[in-house]
Computed example of a mutant assay.
Amino acid sequence: GIELCEPSYLYNLLNQYRRVSRLAEPNYLCLLDARSQREYNESHIVTARRIAQSPTGEYLVPDAEELRCVRHCVVYDCETNSLDCCDYEEEEKEKGTSASESEKPNSGSLCSQTAEQGAALHHALGLQQFTPHPVLVLRGGYQSFSASYHFLRTQKVLWMPQELDNFQPYPVEILPGKLYLGNFKQACDPQILKDLKIKAQVNISQQPAAL
């Protein structure tokens, strides 16, 4: 199946860890960028790979065997917000931009517009057959995610296993933009505090040092 996921959900997926970041686990997360090559090169979400297909339509990135084993598969484009034409039409009504009955385009036209704007959904439909878990489409796409989590953008394409082992996770987000749960080391990191705009902390660890 296919489901929408919120930017905060992807943020928390990226920042899970045990002894080291879970991004180092090969079957944990497959994060796929469905935007153009130019947009991907300019910046993308950390560890994301750009979707690639052969001339015959077969997926080269990711391959089918990889998807059968991966736990989380997330696809994003620029700004997809819905999974079907009906949702698209409802969004237009809420924005007050829907045409009157005499001017309203037919459903085929709406689907065409959605397909043009929803590359993530297009690829998710093709990828869902390969994975036993739902393929997640990032709500709001790269624009929404990068607006909230600009510090998780990068131009880096290749990640070595040691780099993923050493990836420094951020605190998990409990209430988007307001409440986070982290460890003492994260609480003492000035860059994390700056990136998340944390103004106050509650220490429930056994560390006696003042924050």
Rank of each mutant, 00 (worst) to 15 (best):
L121D: 03
S112N: 11
K93L: 10
C86Y: 12
L196S: 12
A34S: 10
C5V: 12
T80L: 03
F151G: 10
K93S: 05
Y180I: 11
C86N: 08
P105C: 07
V135L: 04
H150M: 00
E103V: 05
C86M: 06
Y17D: 10
L4M: 15
P26V: 05
Y149E: 06
N15P: 07
N183Q: 01
E3W: 02
F151D: 05
F145S: 08
A48Y: 03
D63M: 02
I45D: 06
N166D: 14
S107V: 09
E163K: 09
Q201V: 13
D195H: 15
N106S: 11
L110D: 13
L164F: 03
S21C: 12
Q113M: 14
C30K: 10
A124R: 02
T131V: 02
L125K: 14
Y180S: 07
S146K: 08
G141K: 07
A48T: 04
E42Q: 09
A99L: 13
V135C: 03
L121V: 13
D77N: 02
H123T: 03
A210P: 00
G182N: 08
R68C: 04
P26M: 06
S100V: 01
Y88Q: 11
S102C: 09
S205F: 07
L60S: 07
Y170H: 13
A124E: 02
F130L: 01
P55C: 04
F167H: 13
V70Q: 02
L175S: 14
H44C: 06
L10F: 03
E91F: 00
S82V: 14
L32S: 07
A52W: 01
G141T: 11
E90F: 05
R68V: 00
F130Y: 15
L196P: 13
Q201T: 14
K93F: 01
E79G: 13
E25C: 06
E103S: 14
Q129H: 10
A34N: 03
L181N: 09
E25G: 00
H122K: 04
S144Y: 06
R38D: 11
L31P: 08
A34I: 01
P62Y: 08
V202T: 11
Y170N: 07
P171A: 01
P176D: 05
E92S: 13
A147M: 08
E6D: 15
E25F: 00
A187P: 00
S36Y: 04
E91P: 04
A187C: 12
P55D: 04
V20F: 09
E90Y: 10
Q206T: 14
N15A: 11
H72V: 00
F130D: 05
I204G: 06
V61F: 05
R68K: 15
C85M: 06
L181D: 07
I174H: 10
A147P: 01
A210R: 12
T47L: 08
S98Y: 08
N106K: 08
E39I: 01
E39H: 04
A147T: 10
P190L: 01
S109M: 10
G182W: 07
C85F: 00
A115S: 15
L127W: 09
P190K: 01
R38N: 08
E103C: 11
K178S: 13
L125F: 01
L181F: 14
R35G: 02
E92I: 02
Q117H: 10
V20T: 14
F167W: 15
L67M: 15
Q168D: 04
L14M: 12
A24K: 14
Q207R: 09
P169D: 08
L32R: 07
G1A: 12
K93R: 15
Q53R: 11
A200D: 12
I51C: 03
P161D: 05
